[in-house]
Amino acid sequence: MNSASPIRKILQGVATRADMFRLFDRHKQRPDRFEGDKSALYAGEWFEIAQQQCDYMLDLLPPLWIRGEMFAMREFMAGSVTSVFFTLRIDNRTRHFHTYCDLADKGSPDRMRAAIIERESRPVKAMSREERLEHIWSATHDDYRGYAGERWPVSDRGKRTVLLYGGKEGTFLKLLEQLTDVEIAAKLPVQLRHLPERQAA
C-alpha cells in the first residue's frame, strides 16, 4: 500500500447499514472529485460492520475473488483500490470489517488483516488523536463538514473543515486537523470522550 495511505480506522463502533453506505465515499464532497487519481484518499481506510451488511455485500455481486476469510468487490472505488471485506475471529468473537485495499500491491489485504487484528486485540480501549479526528469526520453530516475553499489561505485550500458552535459568536468553520482537545471532546459522542489516548501506530 502506498506510504501516503496509512492503514487507519475511520469509525469507532459498528457501522449501521446507512453508515456503511455513507462511509463508502466519505470524500464525495471534495472539490476535485473528478480530477486525477484519488486512490490515496481511500486506500487503507477501514471500519467495522455487522454480519448482515457483510453478507449483503457478498450476495450483491459476484466477488472479484474470495480468499478464506476475505473477499474483494469487483467494482473499484479509485484506480486499483476496491472494497475488501473481512470476517475475523478476534478475542473469541467473530467480527466483520469493510476496508479499502490497493490491489496493485498484492500484500495489502494481508497487511490490512494484520493491522485490524492488532488494533482490535488490545485489552484497553483507547483512541489516538488521528482516530478521534477520523471518527469526527466520518460521523459528521455532510451539511456540517466540507473542504477549505478560496476564502482560505492557499496553504489550507482543499483541507477538511468542520462546523463548530462558538457560543455567543455562533457557528464557524475550522480545519479538522486544527481542532483542540476541547473541541474534539465536544464533537465526540459521550462514550468516546474519556477514552485514554493511544499513540498512533
Results as ranks from 00 to 15, higher is better:
183 E>T: 01
140 T>F: 05
113 R>H: 10
201 A>L: 13
170 G>V: 11
101 C>Y: 04
115 A>F: 11
146 G>Y: 02
199 Q>F: 08
19 D>V: 02
158 G>L: 03
20 M>T: 15
11 L>V: 02
147 Y>Q: 05
76 F>L: 09
78 A>H: 10
22 R>D: 12
174 K>I: 06
142 D>M: 05
198 R>C: 13
117 I>R: 06
174 K>Q: 15
128 S>P: 11
14 V>F: 01
181 D>S: 07
71 F>H: 06
196 P>S: 06
66 I>D: 00
93 R>D: 08
147 Y>F: 15
25 D>M: 01
18 A>G: 02
160 R>K: 13
32 D>Q: 06
187 K>Y: 00
63 P>N: 06
147 Y>W: 13
11 L>W: 05
181 D>T: 01
201 A>F: 12
58 L>G: 01
142 D>K: 05
48 E>A: 08
94 T>R: 08
95 R>W: 02
76 F>D: 05
83 S>D: 15
201 A>K: 12
94 T>H: 06
125 K>R: 15
180 T>W: 00
111 R>D: 11
30 R>D: 08
9 K>D: 09
63 P>K: 08
191 Q>N: 15
151 R>C: 01
30 R>Y: 03
190 V>E: 14
111 R>A: 06
180 T>A: 03
115 A>M: 09
182 V>L: 08
93 R>L: 13
142 D>H: 03
36 G>D: 01
175 L>A: 07
161 T>K: 14
160 R>M: 13
124 V>P: 00
31 P>T: 02
198 R>F: 00
191 Q>I: 11
39 S>C: 03
101 C>K: 02
4 A>G: 03
156 D>N: 09
29 Q>L: 15
27 H>A: 03
135 H>E: 04
46 W>N: 05
37 D>Y: 03
22 R>Q: 08
39 S>G: 08
130 E>G: 14
157 R>Q: 13
195 L>Y: 10
76 F>I: 06
105 D>H: 11
120 E>V: 09
151 R>S: 14
173 L>K: 14
155 S>N: 10
90 I>N: 07
94 T>L: 10
195 L>M: 12
184 I>M: 09
9 K>E: 10
178 Q>S: 14
46 W>V: 07
153 P>M: 04
5 S>K: 05
22 R>W: 00
44 G>F: 04
18 A>Q: 13
195 L>E: 09
152 W>G: 02
52 Q>C: 11
158 G>D: 03
127 M>R: 08
93 R>M: 11
197 E>L: 15
67 R>H: 12
60 L>Q: 12
151 R>K: 13
42 Y>M: 06
31 P>S: 02
73 M>G: 10
69 E>Y: 10
94 T>V: 11
75 E>Q: 15
64 L>H: 13
164 L>Y: 02
10 I>T: 09
22 R>T: 07
145 R>A: 04
89 R>E: 14
60 L>S: 12
191 Q>G: 04
33 R>P: 00
171 T>E: 15
100 Y>V: 03
41 L>N: 09
137 W>G: 08
155 S>E: 15
101 C>I: 04
50 A>Q: 12
173 L>A: 12
123 P>M: 00
53 Q>K: 02
96 H>A: 00
133 L>F: 00
119 R>G: 11
154 V>P: 00
93 R>F: 07
136 I>Q: 06
37 D>H: 04
121 S>H: 06
61 L>R: 15
100 Y>A: 10
134 E>W: 12
89 R>A: 13
166 G>K: 11
61 L>F: 14
171 T>D: 14
43 A>P: 11
7 I>N: 02
81 V>Q: 07
78 A>Q: 13
68 G>C: 04
